[in-house]
């Protein structure tokens, strides 16, 4: 606590961070460890909410709102829909991995990733001039700041994302569209059969 006092962290901030941080980690663990996809999705909501809280904590109110609306509200619901539609809410076997060496390698590499990111975050990595768009210390609100940045400096990327969204919607419709299938064609295509022969 001496440390904390030295850095002048107020208690509410600390509590917020700790609670949200623990929620983030727990949610992530849930996603990774839960056997039922529905449970995974619900754990993910927890994580996303916690991240939104952390956004607010760091004065990014607009993004926090968007995070809740888009991620928790739309994306996770989409996930759940797909899970329900496909009926894959059955349990997955989490025992021994069929791929030899995949799991230990994964653990090792993830560990190294973690360490490396920490090392990166510790050092001072600023190179070159700072790309100052707009200072966050100015008195205007966060939403207005963001709006100014997006609609002036980043107008072209913004327009591009709108195109991207339209393309994504059209692509999704095309992908999911049910082609008029003949009754007999429900069986697996030929190349997949040869694949099973190879096994």
């Amino acid at each position: 606590m001496i440390d904390l006092l030295a850095t002048q962290i107020t208690l509410p901030d600390l509590i917020t961070f700790l609670v949200a941080g623990i929620a983030v980690v727990l949610g992530a663990l849930g996603v990774v460890l839960m056997r039922n996809p529905v449970h995974s999705a619900l754990s993910m909501i927890m994580t996303l909410f916690a991240v939104a809280v952390l956004f607010i904590e760091q004065d990014a109110q607009f993004l926090a709102a968007v995070q809740v609306i888009v991620y928790a509200g739309a994306i996770v619901v989409l996930f759940l829909f797909v899970i329900m539609l496909l009926g894959v809410d059955k349990k997955e076997y989490l025992g021994k991995d069929k791929l030899r060496g995949q799991r230990p390698l994964a653990f090792i590499s993830v560990l190294i990733i973690f360490v490396e990111i920490l090392t990166l975050a510790r050092g001072n990595w600023a190179t070159g001039a700072k790309a100052t768009v707009m200072s966050t210390t100015s008195p205007i609100s966060n939403v207005e700041q963001l709006a100014r940045a997006i609609f002036t400096t980043y107008l072209l990327p913004f327009e591009a994302t709108s195109v991207l969204l339209i393309v994504a919607v059209v692509g999704a419709v095309v992908l999911v569209r049910r082609v008029d299938e003949k009754p007999g064609s429900a069986e697996q295509p030929k190349e997949l059969e040869t694949e099973s022969e190879m096994k």
Partner: peptide, 16 residues
């Protein structure tokens, strides 16, 4: 640190 942890967990989930 928190985000590194989150990233690592995500990667772990993706691999396993």
């Amino acid at each position: 640190v928190l985000s590194a942890l989150l990233f690592s967990l995500g990667a772990l989930g993706f691999f396993t």
